[in-house]
Design a protein around this nucleic acid. Structure first.
Lengths: 355, 355
DNA sequence: CTGAAAGCGCTTACAG
DNA sequence: CTGAAAGCGCTTACAG
C-alpha cells in the first residue's frame, strides 16, 4: 500500500497551520524576534509586562519551538546516545538493556531529550559510530556501557570532547563521571552463602574477562573463596552467552570430581547451566547448587527457582541519565555509587549431598 | 569527576579545524555556495569540470556536511523512530526487540540514518510520544510494532502525515506498507505436530488478545484443532509475561483432566511453563508436551530443549527498515510478506503417556 | 528594557 | 552552466 501524495487528513492539518514562528509571534506582539526569543527562554532583559504579553501571544498562536532551528543556532541536538556493541545472541538473551533503557527514557522524556540508539556488531564499528554521531551532531552526550579493559572509548570521547557517563568505574583514568553498582558484594555473598551451606568445591562460570564487569565478578569470586578459607576454585571463561554457559557447565560436570556448586556470572548462563545439569541427570539443588547474577525475570520461574544477585538496571538507567544531564548542564557531575546488588536466595542452592 | 573546561586533546582538535563550511569551499573553488551545494548533492546543472574541482576542494579541505543545517533547510531529520509501549517485565524477557533493532540498524547505519528509540509505559504516553516526535521533527518515519486491535496509531500517524511501516497487517484500513511474517503456519504446524504424536487434549496459553499477533496465534490454534479433527481446546489468556505463563500453566495442570500438551504463544511463557511443570512434578515431555513461539536462544538450552516456532526478528528488522526507507524515498512501498515462521522440533514434545 | 542585525550552514528557486 | 540572494527558524552579541 502506498501513502497517497496527500492524505486528506494530513493536508487538512497542514493547511490550518501556516507555520507560526517567532517571527509571527513578534509581529503579533509588536516586538522584535530577539525579544520574543528572550521571553520564551526565560532570559533576563525583558520587562515583566512585555514578557507576559509575548508568552500569551505565543500561546494563543500555538507557537511551538523548532528544534531544528534551535539546534542549528545552539549547536546542540538535545539528544543523548547509546551505542551497544554486543554480539546479537548475547544481547538478545540479556534483559539488561531493555530495562536500562526504560530507566534512561523515564528521565529523558520529561526533559524533552531523545535517545539515539546504535547497535553495532564490533568494536571497530563502535568507535566509528561515536565519531559519526559527533560529526553529525546527533547527540550531546553518550552512555558508555559494557566497559572494557583499557577501554578505547574513554580517550576517544575525551578527544571528541563529547560528554559521557560510564557505567562503572573504568580501570584507567577517565575524565567522565561514573555511575557504579558494585559487583563485588553480590558475588562475595553468593560464595559465602554456598560456603555456609557446606560447599567446598565451588566453580565459577565467568564472563568475558575483556569486560570489566566480567573480570570483577571473577576477581570477587576468587577473593571470596580465599576469605571463606576454601581451596581455589575452577573458573571457566565464556563470552556471557547461553551457549557458552551451557558448554562450560558440561565441562565442569563431566570431570572426575565435579564441583558441588557453580557461581555463574549472569543469569542466562545459569539458566543454561540448569538445563545442562538436568540433561546430565545432575539434580539441582540436591547434587549441584547454582547461583546467577542479575535477577532477570526468568529466575523466579525456572525450576528450581534461581538463587541470584539482584541488580537494578532500571534504577541504573535513571541515575546514569540524570548524571549525564547534570554533566551537560553544569560541566561537571559527581560519581554516583548505587546500592550494591544483593543476594536473593531461592531454590537452586542447598547443602551439598553426602559425598 | 569532572570534565575540565578544555581537555587538552579536544582543544587541540578544535583549533586545528576552523569549521570548513560550503562557504569556504566555494571561496576556495572560486564559485558560489549554491554551486557547491549542487555539486555536493550530485544535482544536474554543474559542468563536469567544475564539479570535479569542487569535489576535490571539498575533500582537500576536509569538508563535512552539517546535518543540522541540512535538516533546517530540508525540514528532515534523517532519523527514524521506534516507540515501544510494553510493560518493562514483558519487554525485558522477550528478545524480540534487541534482534529486531539489530536488523534495523544494519540497514540504517550505511544510509547515515539514526534510530531514535522511545520506551514508554502506556498507550497514552505512546501517542503523545509520536506527536512530540513529529512536533520536534525528530524523525522522518516510524516503525509500528505490537499492532493492536483497531490500533489508534494508524489514524494518528496518517493525520500527522508521518510515513510509517507496520509489522504485520493491521485489522483495519491502513495507508502504510506492512511487512509481515505470518503467524498462522507456525502455530498450525505446532498443533499438527502434537496431533500427529497422538495428543487430543491440547491447550493454548495465549498472549494478550488486544495484540494482533496474540489474537492471530490464538485463532490459528483454534483453527488447527478443528482441522485436525480434535475437540476444542482450553485457552488461557495472558499478558505475554513469564509470570502469567507460569500461572496459566499451574491452572491448566492442576485440573481434573489436564491437557497432555500446551501450545504457548511465546517462548518466555513456555519456559516458565516448563518450570511450573517441573515444580508440579509433571514430566516433560513424558507427561506433558510443550511448544513455544519465537525460538529465542534459551530454547536450545533449557531441559528438555524446547520445540518452538522459529521467527527471524533480525530479518524482519532489515526488511522493515528497507521498506520504510523506500517509502520515504519514493512516496510508496509495497507490502512485504516474509517467509512464515517454521516449526523446530526439539525435546519438549513426545507422544502422550499411556492414559 | 528594547530593536535591528548578523549568524548557525545548508538548499532552492530565480535570473542571467 | 553559473551567481547572487533569500529562506529554513531560531539565538546572540551589539547598540541604543
Amino acid at each position: 500500500m502506498n501513502i497517497p501524495a496527500n492524505l486528506p487528513a494530513s493536508t487538512a492539518m497542514k493547511s490550518t497551520s501556516p507555520k507560526v514562528t517567532i517571527e509571527v509571534v513578534a509581529r503579533q506582539a509588536g516586538v522584535s524576534k530577539g525579544l520574543v526569543s528572550f521571553a520564551l527562554n526565560n532570559r533576563p532583559g525583558v520587562s515583566p509586562e512585555t514578557r507576559v504579553r509575548i508568552l500569551q501571544v505565543a500561546k494563543d498562536l500555538g507557537w511551538k519551538p523548532s528544534l531544528r532551528a534551535r539546534s542549528l543556532s545552539t549547536q546542540r541536538s538535545y539528544a543523548l546516545g547509546l551505542v551497544i556493541a554486543r554480539n546479537p545472541d548475547v544481547l538478545a538473551s540479556d534483559p539488561f538493556f531493555p530495562s536500562f533503557i526504560a530507566g534512561v527514557e523515564s528521565i529523558l522524556a520529561p526533559e524533552g531529550r531523545a535517545l539515539v540508539l546504535s547497535v553495532v556488531p564490533d568494536e571497530e564499528t563502535e568507535l566509528r559510530t561515536y565519531r559519526s554521531l559527533v560529526a553529525d551532531g546527533r547527540v550531546d552526550g553518550v552512555f558508555v556501557t559494557d566497559l572494557r579493559l583499557n577501554d578505547a572509548r574513554i580517550p576517544l570521547l575525551a578527544e571528541l570532547g563529547l560528554p559521557a557517563v560510564t557505567l562503572g568505574r573504568p580501570d584507567g583514568p577517565s575524565p567522565f563521571p561514573a555511575v557504579t553498582v558494585d559487583d563485588t558484594p553480590g558475588v562475595m555473598a553468593s560464595v559465602a552463602h554456598l560456603a555456609t551451606l557446606g560447599h567446598r568445591r565451588i566453580a565459577h562460570v565467568a564472563g568475558s574477562s575483556t569486560l570489566l564487569h566480567g573480570l570483577r565478578r571473577r576477581e570477587a569470586f576468587t577473593a571470596a573463596l580465599r576469605e571463606a578459607g576454601l581451596p581455589e576454585g575452577q573458573t571457566v571463561e565464556t563470552d556471557f552467552s547461553v551457549a557458552a554457559g551451557s558448554d562450560a557447565t558440561r565441562r565442569l560436570l563431566t570431570q572426575d570430581r565435579p564441583p558441588t556448586a557453580i557461581v555463574y556470572a549472569n543469569d542466562p548462563m545459569a539458566i543454561a547451566g540448569l538445563g545442562m545439569a538436568h540433561e546430565l541427570g545432575v539434580r539441582v539443588p540436591d547434587e549441584l547448587s547454582i547461583t546467577g547474577y542479575d535477577d532477570i525475570d526468568f529466575c523466579r520461574y525456572v525450576y528450581p527457582p534461581l538463587t541470584t544477585v539482584s541488580a537494578a538496571p532500571m534504577v541504573w538507567g535513571r541515575s546514569a541519565a540524570s548524571t549525564l544531564l547534570a554533566l551537560m548542564e553544569s560541566g561537571s557531575a559527581d560519581d554516583v555509587d548505587l546500592p550494591a546488588a544483593r543476594l536473593v536466595v531461592r531454590g537452586s542452592t542447598a547443602p551439598p549431598s553426602g559425598k
